[in-house]
């Protein structure tokens, strides 16, 4: 089985954004996007194509190097305390992939230059970055599935900092990857720099299921990815 490290440097045009989705994520509905907003976002999107440097990679841990522990998993000799939610989703995995991706430093510098003088561009630039990361992770997920093999089923992506998996475990995750992999560094609080980066694991095996909408099964109040729950909470606060 594979036990290799893979690394990719994507062309920015591989990550095509749907600008309507970005405008919808700002709170507008399809029928009430104010005149001129699409053009503002489009202009920023075109600028962003020159500053993103999408780099990613992953390491495949073969069948046999993964086992389960209470509220977590063990990859090779390293124990991860993912919390019960993720652990339950990974309980049947036979192998695992550790991955990381980033948009690079230039993107961060580009968004940073708007700060203080163009609040909308600061905000929209951040959303554009998050949208790139989502699309990039979708691309990487497919690539991982192709490399590992169609004979397996795959889990969702799980990352430190989400679903109650403590972000400090990101340090352990990066021990599976070469130092400063893809140009990503960890801060003293285990956060990735550049900020628009993602790391995590994907499990694989014969009896592994991917959830269509993982956030819908979670009632975690304290997760910023749980948009529905958050929206309900805000609505409740102002009723």
């Amino acid at each position: 089985m594979l036990n290799n490290l893979f690394q990719y440097n994507l062309s920015s045009n591989k990550l095509k954004l749907n600008l309507d989705h970005i405008l919808l994520s700002m709170g507008y509905s399809e029928n009430n996007i104010p005149s001129g907003y699409y053009e503002l976002v489009q202009n920023l999107y075109f600028q962003s194509l020159d500053v993103i440097n999408p780099v990613c990679g992953f390491k495949v841990l073969p069948v046999g190097e993964v086992s389960t522990i209470t509220n977590g998993i063990k990859l090779a000799d390293v124990e991860f305390y993912t919390g019960s939610k993720i652990a339950s989703r990974l309980k049947n995995i036979e192998g695992s992939v550790v991955f990381a991706l980033t948009l690079g430093c230039k993107f961060e510098e580009w968004v940073g230059k708007f700060y203080g003088n163009d609040p909308f561009a600061t905000y929209a630039g951040d959303l554009i970055g998050s949208a790139y990361v989502e699309i990039f992770s979708d691309w990487l997920e497919k690539e991982i599935e192709n490399i590992v093999g169609k004979e397996f089923e795959f889990s969702n992506i799980y990352s430190p900092g989400y679903c109650n998996w403590d972000i400090s475990e990101q340090v352990k995750l990066f021990t599976f990857l070469p130092k400063h992999f893809c140009g990503i560094k960890l801060s003293s609080y285990s956060m990735m720099q550049p900020k628009k980066s993602l790391s995590g694991i994907i499990g694989y095996g014969k009896d592994v299921a991917k959830l269509e909408l993982p956030c819908n099964l979670c009632v975690d109040f304290n997760c910023h990815k749980n948009i529905n729950e958050k929206k309900n909470r805000i609505d409740d606060n102002f009723e």
Binding site: M26, P34, P119, F120
Partner: peptide, 14 residues
């Protein structure tokens, strides 16, 4: 109105 509307106003304010 939404956050972007406030930010666009904030730019003019600045």
């Amino acid at each position: 109105a939404f956050i972007p509307d406030m930010l666009i106003a904030a730019k003019a304010m600045n």
